[in-house]
Amino acid sequence: MVQRTVTQITDDLDGTPGARSVTFALEGASYSIDLSEVNLARLREALAPFIENAVREGAADGRRASSVGTWRREDLQEWAKARGYRVGDRGRVPQGIVDEYLSTR
């Protein structure tokens, strides 16, 4: 006797078969939902203006972007001061200065 088990993923919103799992995060909480291509497109469309104006925190697999951590603060401070930027010895360096520094490397 042969037994065959079939798992069918359905859209969590409307029950459409053939959905796939999608994850997203908001305010520190991660969510997972099964969506059809139609509802996934709706989610992407709804989030598009926010994503376009947001700063990406890391790569999709959880690793940080490759440019993060590849520079020394001392080198950046020296570079910035030579170009007239005011950069303190401690505290956060404005992202615009970091981006410009990285673009010259």
Rank of each mutant, 00 (worst) to 15 (best):
L43V: 10
I33Y: 02
V6I: 15
S36D: 01
R83H: 09
Q8R: 12
D14V: 04
E45D: 08
W79Q: 02
Y31F: 11
W79I: 10
I51A: 06
A54Y: 11
V22G: 02
S36K: 02
A19R: 00
G18Q: 01
T10Y: 09
A60V: 14
T70Y: 09
L26M: 09
L47I: 11
T104R: 13
L13M: 06
G15N: 01
Q8I: 15
P94L: 08
L35H: 02
G69N: 10
D75T: 02
N53H: 15
L26F: 12
R42L: 08
R56T: 14
A48N: 04
G62R: 08
L76Y: 05
A54H: 07
D14E: 03
V68K: 15
E100Y: 09
A25G: 03
D12I: 06
G28S: 09
Y31K: 04
T16G: 03
V87Q: 01
I51K: 10
R63G: 08
S67P: 07
T7S: 09
P17T: 07
E74L: 04
R56M: 13
I51P: 07
R86V: 13
R4K: 14
R90P: 00
G18E: 01
A19Q: 01
G84M: 12
T70S: 10
G62W: 05
R4W: 03
E74C: 08
T16D: 01
L40E: 06
A46C: 07
D34S: 03
E74R: 11
E57R: 14
S66K: 14
A25W: 11
R44L: 03
R44C: 01
E57M: 15
V2C: 01
Q3A: 15
E78G: 00
R63S: 12
A29S: 08
L102S: 04
W71G: 04
S103H: 09
R20K: 02
T104Y: 08
D34V: 06
R4N: 09
T23R: 09
K81G: 05
G62K: 09
A25S: 07
T5P: 00
L47Q: 01
V87N: 05
A82R: 13
S66H: 13
R20G: 02
I97E: 00
S32A: 07
A59R: 15
V2K: 13
N53E: 15
S103F: 10
M1D: 11
I33M: 02
P49C: 06
D14N: 10
N39S: 00
D99G: 04
R86T: 12
R90E: 05
I33H: 01
P49E: 11
D99E: 14
L76A: 00
T7L: 10
L26E: 05
L43G: 04
G96F: 11
V87I: 14
V22H: 03
S30R: 10
D34G: 00
T104N: 07
T23P: 04
G15M: 05
W71F: 15
S32H: 02
T23I: 07
G58A: 15
S67Q: 11
E78H: 06
E100C: 05
M1R: 13
A41S: 07
S103Y: 09
E57V: 15
A60P: 04
A60G: 03
G62E: 00
V55K: 15
R90L: 01
A60N: 11
G96W: 12
A46W: 12
R72A: 10
A41L: 08
Y85R: 06
L43M: 09
